[in-house]
Design a protein around this nucleic acid. Sequence first.
DNA 1: AATGAATGAGTATTCATTCAT
DNA 2: AATGAATGAATACTCATTCAT
Lengths: 227, 227, 227, 227
Amino acid sequence: MVVGELNSPGGSSRNTRREQILAAARTLFAGSGYDQTSISDIATAVGVADGAIYKHFTSKREILYEVIREFYEPVIDMAATNVEGMSGIRERLRYLIWLQLRAFTEQPELCRLIIAEARPMEDYYESRIADLNRRYTTLLVEVVEDGQRAGEFNDDIDAAMVRDVVYGGIEHVAWGAATGRRSVDATRVADSLTSLICNGLERRTDRDGLLADAVDRLEHVADRLER
Amino acid sequence: MVVGELNSPGGSSRNTRREQILAAARTLFAGSGYDQTSISDIATAVGVADGAIYKHFTSKREILYEVIREFYEPVIDMAATNVEGMSGIRERLRYLIWLQLRAFTEQPELCRLIIAEARPMEDYYESRIADLNRRYTTLLVEVVEDGQRAGEFNDDIDAAMVRDVVYGGIEHVAWGAATGRRSVDATRVADSLTSLICNGLERRTDRDGLLADAVDRLEHVADRLER
Amino acid sequence: MVVGELNSPGGSSRNTRREQILAAARTLFAGSGYDQTSISDIATAVGVADGAIYKHFTSKREILYEVIREFYEPVIDMAATNVEGMSGIRERLRYLIWLQLRAFTEQPELCRLIIAEARPMEDYYESRIADLNRRYTTLLVEVVEDGQRAGEFNDDIDAAMVRDVVYGGIEHVAWGAATGRRSVDATRVADSLTSLICNGLERRTDRDGLLADAVDRLEHVADRLER
Amino acid sequence: MVVGELNSPGGSSRNTRREQILAAARTLFAGSGYDQTSISDIATAVGVADGAIYKHFTSKREILYEVIREFYEPVIDMAATNVEGMSGIRERLRYLIWLQLRAFTEQPELCRLIIAEARPMEDYYESRIADLNRRYTTLLVEVVEDGQRAGEFNDDIDAAMVRDVVYGGIEHVAWGAATGRRSVDATRVADSLTSLICNGLERRTDRDGLLADAVDRLEHVADRLER
DNA sequence: AATGAATGAGTATTCATTCAT
DNA sequence: AATGAATGAATACTCATTCAT
């Protein structure tokens, strides 16, 4: 699977009736929102009777969850796979940030769907979508904890808070894009955000100390030489 | 106005009918959510007829916005006032983060209302609430830009992105509290988040400069000795 | 209240909106059955919007129950009042039988409604209709028990069984009328049924006693003659 | 066929697909009611596809009728056979009452099915079930008419009314059992009901007269002998 | 005999808002 | 300021039955 094919996952695009329904729902949900899209709208778009929808899905909400899953799962699978094959802490962090940012800014409507429609739902936290999300955010938490264990990152800061800051930040940025109030260059923002977070986390004191010592010694040498 | 009185703003608590309606709506919205609360529920709670509500508000949504404003405006006023009187960049940043975090974690239901009910609404970005929010986030952007101008902060990083990261992070943390999945110590989280962001933003170039200066001097000394 | 006005009870016919709805529902339920009558049908018949119905009734079922109550309650009130003022056991029995039979055969559609639509409903036995019915059948049970206490009726037979037989019989007769398969003369059937039940219940022991006495005396005489 | 085998009629239990469907339907109808049981439920219980059901039955209603028939027909066959072989009017009456009462109280769910689900159906009176019922009730009418022709029963009372009273009574008693509000001892109730009906029907006046005459004459003889 | 996907009609209920009084 | 009756649109879901395979 290639980065460029986020939404055409080989296996599921067999254009079964199920896929047709999901495709129609994706378009309609993205265009008009979940509440404004009726089962009848979806059925009409597919060209079947209303009742046929229920041969493939048990409820409208299930359709929403599946639409989101089809979009989100490949991103997460890719993230999990690739993060494993990357070496540096910072590298991995940047990748996770960039991937999510890219997915959300390229599909701002699906971003809106997740944030504004799915997440406020009562049973969201028991849904597969929440599971996916947890899988994703766990990847980042683990990278941060790796960084802390390796002594590269300051371990005073709670990794869960870093996760909230990163994904909260991504969501705010993407939400701006989703509501059409801003355009976003995923790569630039990812770099910038990675910098901010990594600098913020880096164990400063020691390196600073070493550096300061080196500078001091240089100064002394210079003084002596001058004299 | 004192920190401890976030929700009893002097001027507006004159217990007029308008205030009674807002008080009832606040309780009901917080308890059952916006959609699940009907105008009838509010009218009944106040003890008036349904129609009477519309003598004071033009729509149900306006009530929501006013409920949020009553909660949010004092926080922002306080932020604007106090931030002005503070000296250090970091100090001001920490204060803004802490105030928002505290407001959201102390009133998780209102936090939920803003994030999950008000913001997804179509006309949210034309509403007074969005204005309030902009006023608030602008405070933070200005502090960051001050820091950048003062040379304290790296100005490679877009202040708007910092704003998204900070408020996105705060919201994620508070949302966890609002949905009852986590308990939050506002002060600790604020400290931690401030650290992360400030460290992330701080200019390293100073030390580079020192180093460069030292090297320069060494070179001069070497020159002179050579001569 | 007079027998002839079973369904025009003074107080309730004020032609309020509520009464209009009940009147329309009565007609429609009687004509097409409960399931086949939609709320829209009723609203249209009254000349109001669908939603207006719910200002007066909480559910379609409540309308059914009220239709039945309006028909049934006066019958029961009358029964309770008049039975009290009657002297003979048999007289009272006949009256109760006749009244129910008359109500059911004069309003066969409402009879059908009670038996075939209301009674099979899940919550029927918790409804006001079941209460009414219990009040009614209790009247008969009490008359039978009075008869048993007075020595007029055989107390070997369970009064509750008599009640089941009487009301079951009435329903079968009335159901035949309701389904249009038979025409019924309430007075003749009431007389006949009263006869059957009273004869069935009457104590025979008296005559046995007389016979035994006579035989005793004959034996005594025979004894004396022998001596 | 023996009384104890009411529901295992030899011929039909060949466990054909048809019988499997009926068995599943019987269980499901009894447990959840006719309306609450879908064709899919039945098909799933049998382990075939929905469409397969229609190879054996033309409609859901036909299944209901067959379920009832399988239960009811043996009872009626037995009644017809045994009533013929019985001598006394009262004996036969008691048997018919007892048999129906026993069937209904032993299978209260099927009793409910007949009374509350099948009978209110529009085409019930054109169905085989109504035929069965007529055959059954005719047996009783004939016994009563035999009694009247033999002079044992009063012929003022319409035999059809007696039928309604008896079966109406049985149904009320059984319905109480079916809805779980009462427990019933079929034999005791049958005896009691038979007593009530027979006493109610017995030609009283003549026999009473004869008896009274006999007693009078005995008294006179005794008097004369004494004197 | 069996499959099982497709049909498509049918409906109770809610509620923000209005307006005549 | 207040009333409160009236509006009326809007919609997910079920299921007996069919039919091409």
